[in-house]
Computed example of a mutant assay.
Amino acid sequence: MKFMDLQAQLEDNRRSVAFDSYDISVRQLYDMTLEGMIDIAPDYQRHFVWDEARQSELIESLFLGIPVPTLYMATNRDSSWEVIDGLQRLTTIINYVGSLDVIKEVNAKGSKLKISSLEKLSSLNGTRYEDLPKSLQVMFQTRPIRVTVLNDRSDNSVRYDLFERLNTGGVNLHPQEIRNCVYTGEFNDFIKELSMNDSFRNVVKVTKSSANKGVYEELVLKFFCYYEQRDKFVHNVKEFLNDYMESKTKSFKNKVRLRNIFEQTFNELERSLPNGIVRGNRLNVTPMVLFEAIAIGTADVIDNDIAVRQGVIQDLLDNEALKKLTSGATNSRKRLHDRINFVKDAIEHDFRNN
């Protein structure tokens, strides 16, 4: 029975993945990137980390005809390709062949590649692409690279899974960075816009490195997901957020209502919590589970037209009962409901008794 289940899972998941493979020349890849046929997503660009020596090794491998790892792409709705795995290699080619203007367009911090540290082709050390005779330029441009493309018959969950599994650029992508590449569209733009909201930024405290990895955007997503669909949460937060974002990417019809509750909630929290959602007297980092309890609980009382008295939410931050609900094993539907309802009930109780 166990292997029958395995066979069914294999057949089901293999049907959901559809690939096409091509051998494409260096020149074609370069031209396709410049023409927008290959997209290096803005959320992904900043993760170019190869130094000059590592880039030079790739150029040497291409000159020598040594096979380089396959580039993986995904097909977008407009038939363009988006890089899943291969950012370092593709950007290196552009840094070598492209003009400075082209390089800056693809990667704002990029620079022209001067070859260095090679042993086999040591004569290339200290040179740039423009220094090569035409025959060597043509040789380089016609080198083939294997490209495997996830076509548009595969769903977004497969694309997310591939981003997560195949990314080998030396910097692990945060789940929200992957979502920003996979779930493109109006709802993703909406999340990014609200993540810049001043009241939200004043209330939520994250580290600089986290801010650069999409944590603000993920917290906006988490706010809406728990506000609308907390009853569907089971245990896996990542998959829960992915499913919600997938549904909103397909159909986003309540933009005004969601914007209003978001802005009302964080305007109220900015008023009630001048130091933000933090525990103690130090301006430290917002605990994510505490964020869920305070933000969603406050949104619920705003929905019920309950006025929040000054000091009530501030007192909740260090409440011992809430501490217990926001520590330990917290990823269950019951614990999620318990901590949100604790905040909601406390604010409503204060309202009724004052």
Rank of each mutant, 00 (worst) to 15 (best):
L87K: 14
Q88G: 07
Q88T: 07
Q88V: 08
Q88K: 10
L90V: 10
L90C: 08
T91G: 01
T91W: 00
T91Y: 00
T92L: 01
I93S: 01
I94G: 00
I94H: 02
Y96M: 05
Y96P: 00
V97Q: 01
G98H: 04
S99G: 15
L100V: 15
D101V: 06
D101S: 14
V102D: 14
V102M: 08
I103L: 08
I103G: 03
K104E: 14
E105F: 10
E105C: 11
V106F: 03
N107K: 09
N107G: 06
N107P: 00
N107T: 07
A108Q: 15
K112P: 04
K112R: 13
K112T: 14
L113R: 02
K114F: 08
I115Y: 00
I115S: 03
I115K: 01
S117G: 05
S117K: 13
L118G: 01
L118D: 01
L118A: 02
E119K: 14
K120M: 09
K120C: 05
S122N: 13
S122V: 04
S123T: 12
S123N: 13
N125S: 08
N125V: 09
G126D: 10
G126N: 06
T127P: 08
R128V: 13
E130R: 11
E130N: 11
L132R: 01
P133S: 01
P133I: 03
K134G: 13
K134F: 08
L136S: 01
Q137D: 03
V138S: 10
V138P: 07
V138C: 06
M139D: 13
F140P: 00
Q141K: 15
Q141D: 14
Q141T: 05
T142R: 15
T142L: 12
R143F: 02
R143Y: 00
R143M: 12
I145S: 04
I145A: 02
R146V: 05
R146C: 08
R146L: 10
T148P: 07
T148F: 03
V149T: 14
N151F: 06
N151T: 05
D152Y: 08
R153A: 11
R153G: 07
R153T: 11
D155M: 03
S157H: 12
V158M: 14
R159G: 08
R159Q: 15
Y160S: 02
Y160D: 06
L162W: 07
E164V: 07
N167Q: 09
N167Y: 09
T168K: 14
T168I: 09
T168Y: 13
G170K: 06
G170L: 10
G170Q: 05
G170T: 07
G170H: 06
V171F: 10
N172H: 11
N172C: 03
N172K: 13
H174R: 09
H174D: 12
P175G: 09
Q176A: 02
Q176P: 06
E177M: 07
E177K: 11
